[in-house]
Design a protein around this nucleic acid. Sequence first.
DNA 1: TGTATTTGCCTAAACCCTATAGGCAAATTA
DNA 2: TAATTTGCCTATAGGGTTTAGGCAAATACA
Lengths: 198, 198
Amino acid sequence: MARVGLTAERLTRAGAELADEAGFDQVTLSALARSFDVKVASLYSHVRNSHDLKTRITLLALEELADRVSAAVAGRAGRDALAAFADAYRDYAREHPGRYAATRFALAPEVAAASAGGRHAQLSRAILRGYHLREPDQTHAVRMLGSVFHGYISLEAAGSFSHTAVDSQESWDWTIDSLDALLRTWTTDTTTADRTGR
Amino acid sequence: MARVGLTAERLTRAGAELADEAGFDQVTLSALARSFDVKVASLYSHVRNSHDLKTRITLLALEELADRVSAAVAGRAGRDALAAFADAYRDYAREHPGRYAATRFALAPEVAAASAGGRHAQLSRAILRGYHLREPDQTHAVRMLGSVFHGYISLEAAGSFSHTAVDSQESWDWTIDSLDALLRTWTTDTTTADRTGR
DNA sequence: TGTATTTGCCTAAACCCTATAGGCAAATTA
DNA sequence: TAATTTGCCTATAGGGTTTAGGCAAATACA
């Protein structure tokens, strides 16, 4: 019985590819075993179980994505940085839908703490640095940006924006412009009363 | 063999409850059969298959949610309407996490066309009526609002906002205020160049 | 280099979920 | 009351997960 040379890493990479091709929830140990022409039970020497495999794919995706976002925003500021940041997420989601879906997988707290999740949070705050927000506004803004981008990406992936004639790219640009404008109002004018006009 | 009196409707309602308790992807025909103390095969007389059941739960959730949102925004305008709209979605997601998750289930195009999805789109546009946006800005704004609210709700549900001391309710209010302010800039000043300051 | 140990992949088996076919009895209709 | 429809059943097959235990290939060590 020749050995195929499985490792947790190879399984994780193959799992990530399968996720992109068939969807993250189609990633099963059975499918993976088939793709390596190996019996399912053999995989249990390398990953603890199905959940463990998904966790590993999630960690891989979080790292990859953080690397991309990090490279995209390097040397940029203001609207430029904001757009690069947003595009990095969206492009990744479009190129790697399964991996992007994996980044939504609920990790165990200890695992999450050791993941690239922290880098994402830092990157988000780095983008806002140029807008000079004070706490707690900065936290509010981090949450809002995360919400908009993640929301847009998932609705777009679900096909929610393909019913009308308006191009999705236009709405995306409009959204980034709007967020930039919004954040800039905070830069120069920091009282809520004035900002909201109430 | 006494009959239990199953119907597609009863299965759908029980499925929705199960979704809220255990998660939408824990909704299985097996679990449902157990809860009715009936054999699994019996369910196939009432629903075509597992996918059909999930579709029915999705349609139920979309209707319920549209009813709630519709009632919430009735008689309101401006920021008031915007907040009522947003809160209706968020409250529903918090009270019925499984049903809210169901609203993200990908429906077949014909089914989606006959669903309450259209009502949601109309409600969204109704909110914007008070801000007097022209096309295609209105469409952009509809997409942005959908993105923010859906994104916020799903990130919040995933626990993404429970790592810092800042209260999630505050960020939510801040976000709604920000969106209101943003939309109001469009009301009085409609050229992109001026709005973004580029 | 030969032997001991570890490690990788295997078979076997149990459990759960989905789905179809075909049967019998309860409910409905005539 | 008889005929028909309908609801729930048993049986069966297929796919995914997971554990236990075995044999052989790779590795370590004398």
